[in-house]
Amino acid sequence: MELKHRKAGTVDIIELSGRFDAYEVPLVNRWFDEHTTAQHVIVNLGGVGFIDSSGLSTLVKGLKRCRNHNGDLYLCNLQQAVTIIFELTRLDKAFNIYDDEQSALDAIPG
């Protein structure tokens, strides 16, 4: 899996592509460990065609971290296979999910 990071103002945007499973989880965990104060994070999942429970769990941990810093974690560009997993776990109700990056950026307060 590939992870690309960029900033849009104070917002961190990480773009993931490839399989997001237990084997690739450390890459994303490492990013969060290196950005412990990240407040608003957009995760663009447009390039992710598969996510398993450990991938979901990594996003849950990221969400909790952001909310602990009075921020949030926003997801966008979910492929259908990934959307199905979010719906199956109903975690789609817990995350803020947007069609595209701009919509996610527009939703961030301030």
């Binding site: 084997y23 450990s54 769990s57 849950v60 109903r90 109700k93």
Partner: peptide, 26 residues
């Protein structure tokens, strides 16, 4: 082999508990 080890290890219950808490908060 390393990938299969991770698959066999499964998701720790510690992380599953976080899922429940997210649902409860909502």
């Amino acid at each position: 082999g390393s990938q299969n080890y991770l698959a066999a290890s499964g998701l720790p219950i510690n992380e599953v508990v976080d899922w429940y808490l997210l649902h409860f908060e909502r």
